[in-house]
Every structure is written in structure tokens, then in C-alpha cells.
């Protein structure tokens, strides 16, 4: 694992160089799954997924697989259902009384929406980082320790907290003030704290809903570096409105758009899903091409 000061230099270098630096991290982890990432079956298999809020069909008939130990990006105009979709993976839509999810989401072959599955258990395996940093109004330490405490993994708590903060490249900045209020951190630090908080639960997947859109460019690039770091061990799904960001961080990209029905109802649809390279250079659908080129001018 990289130390914090290595991270600082890594931020300034090109992605290719940075990937070289990640090599020892894989070797460190005697985790064969991380090394054989590319061959493993998909983490999620989504089939015919639709979401309605009351009578509003917000997202219709999405079918896609999410690749393991890679970054998958969702792009598309605002209101096309990206957040709605990403919240289906950790069943956070269950918290919205009017939301109905139909269709199938398989997580490693288990049906996420089977009546025997407890959404609380799902969220222990599938972490989430939100658009606006949302640290708890408690100390930095208590923020990171919340997950382990909730899961009753209180052995080695200090070690778990340090580990998570190191992985989130925040340890060196906060190690001397773990007891201070998390709200005293800068926005970028708060967001990395939220990532650390998520890592402390030791999830399998990390969902990120526009994790950098409320941050300044330097903090944004720190978060992007972090995604590069983390994808060796975690499956990452990220929503972004910034297409350069998708191009920089993601292996796979899904483009969503809005269909307006004859009754004026706006429904999100998956237009195209492919290797990021393909989406940005030779998209198959004219709508994808319009969106991708339109933004770059």
C-alpha cells in the first residue's frame, strides 16, 4: 500500500505512471482474486430493471453486467435516473416509500431483491459514497469506527480505523487530530473521510454517486487517484456528470438518456454500455455520440 506522501507525488504524475506504482499493492495482497480480476464473472447482473416513484416510471428496463474489480461509470444528462439506478445496488431505494423496483439484480448469483434478503446485510457488502460529503457530526475517529461498531467488529478497532484512513489517503493529514470534529475538515478531506468510513466496513463493492461534483479540482483529482488505487481490491461503480472524469477513471461506461413519452413523462433509459474507449471514440448510438461530442465542443 502506498503511504500518504507517495500519494501526494502520485497525484501530480500521469495515470500510466501511477498504475505502475500500484503494482506492489497487488503483490502485497496475497489475494488471488485481485490478480485474476479480469477473468472473474460479473459482480452484478441486472436484468429488465425498472424503477417507479408513485406512478412516475423513472427508469425503464435496464439490462447490464457490472465487471468485477474495475471502475464502471454511469454518464448522462441530469434526471436520467443515474442516482436512481445506482441506489438499486445497495437497496437504498427501499428508504423511499414511493419507490418500486421491478426486474432482477443478481449479486454474485444471489437475487438482491429476493424476499429472504435483508437490505441491511446488502449494505454491509456494498458501500456507498454520496454526492455531498456527509460525515457524521462526530470525531474523525468515530466516523470511521461507526461501521465496525455497527457490525460488532470491535476487535482491533484502532487498527481498522488507521487502515481505512490510510487506504483513503487521509491518514497523514488527520493522524494527529483523530478526536476533532469531522466537520472541521475541508470538503475534499470530508469526502475522503466518507470513503474511509465506507472502507472500514470492508465492502466488496463501492458505489459513488457523483463523488467529486461538490469538490474543487485538486480534491477531485485526489478522489480520482483514489479510485485508481481502490479498483485493484474493490468493484467500483461511479456516477459522474463529468465526461473527462469517466474517460480517466472508468474501464466501462454506460450512457443513460431520457425518453419523453407522449404524456410528457420523462423516463430514463440505458442507451449504450461498452468499454469506455468505445463509448468516447466510436459509439454505436447517435445519441451517445451527440452527448459525448456535444460536451467536448
Amino acid at each position: 500500500m502506498l503511504k500518504g506522501d507517495d500519494m501526494e507525488t502520485a497525484q501530480a504524475t500521469e495515470p500510466a505512471v501511477r498504475l505502475d506504482r500500484v503494482e506492489p499493492a497487488i503483490a502485497d495482497r496475497s489475494d488471488p482474486a485481485a490478480v485474476a480480476a479480469v477473468q472473474v464473472p460479473p459482480v452484478f447482473q441486472v436484468t429488465g430493471l425498472s424503477v417507479t416513484y408513485g406512478s412516475h416510471l423513472a427508469l425503464a428496463d435496464v439490462t447490464m453486467d457490472i465487471r468485477s474489480k474495475a471502475v464502471t461509470a454511469f454518464i448522462g444528462p441530469s434526471g436520467c435516473g443515474k442516482s436512481t439506478f445506482i441506489r438499486c445496488f445497495n437497496r437504498l431505494n427501499d428508504l423511499i416509500p414511493s419507490a418500486r423496483v421491478t426486474g432482477q439484480v443478481l449479486y454474485h448469483e444471489d437475487d438482491l431483491y429476493s424476499p429472504t434478503v435483508d437490505p441491511v446485510e446488502v449494505r454491509k457488502l456494498i458501500g456507498m459514497v454520496f454526492q455531498k460529503p456527509n460525515p457524521f457530526p462526530k470525531s474523525i475517529y468515530d466516523n470511521v469506527a461507526f461501521g465496525p461498531r455497527v457490525l460488532r467488529r470491535k476487535d482491533e478497532l484502532d487498527g481498522r480505523v488507521e487502515m481505512a484512513l490510510r487506504r483513503a489517503a487521509l491518514w497523514d493529514e488527520v493522524k494527529d487530530r483523530l478526536k476533532t470534529n469531522a466537520l472541521s475538515l475541508s470538503g475534499g478531506q470530508q469526502q475522503r473521510l466518507c470513503i474511509a468510513r465506507c472502507l472500514a466496513v470492508e465492502p466488496d463493492v463501492i458505489l459513488m454517486d457523483e463523488p467529486a461534483s461538490a469538490l474543487d479540482p485538486i480534491s477531485t483529482s485526489a478522489i480520482e487517484d483514489l479510485m485508481h488505487e481502490l479498483k485493484t481490491d474493490y468493484t467500483i461503480v461511479v456516477v459522474t456528470h463529468n465526461m473527462q472524469q469517466a474517460a480517466r477513471v472508468a474501464e466501462m461506461t454506460a450512457f443513460f438518456s431520457v425518453d419523453v413519452g407522449e404524456d410528457g413523462q420523462r423516463t430514463g433509459v440505458l442507451v449504450e454500455y461498452d468499454e469506455t474507449q468505445t463509448i468516447f471514440t466510436t459509439p454505436a448510438d447517435p445519441r451517445t455520440e451527440g452527448y459525448v461530442t456535444g460536451r467536448f465542443g
Binding site: 437504498l92 449494505r123 457524521f136 455497527v150 465506507c198 466496513v201
Partner: peptide, 27 residues
């Protein structure tokens, strides 16, 4: 108490009771 606190706690695998007793009520 902002809803983002509840969402954040739920997303870490806390149960409804844990969210209320450890985050919302103290706040």
C-alpha cells in the same frame, strides 16, 4: 437532523434502530 446523516448511516449497513439511536437521536 439532515437526511444525509440517515442515508450515510444506512449505507454503512446500520439497522433502523442503530441509525436512530447512534446518529439521529444524539444529534
Amino acid at each position: 437532523v439532515p437526511d444525509s446523516i440517515r442515508q450515510g448511516a444506512f449505507a454503512l449497513g446500520a439497522s433502523q434502530w442503530q441509525v436512530v439511536s447512534r446518529q439521529v437521536l444524539p444529534a
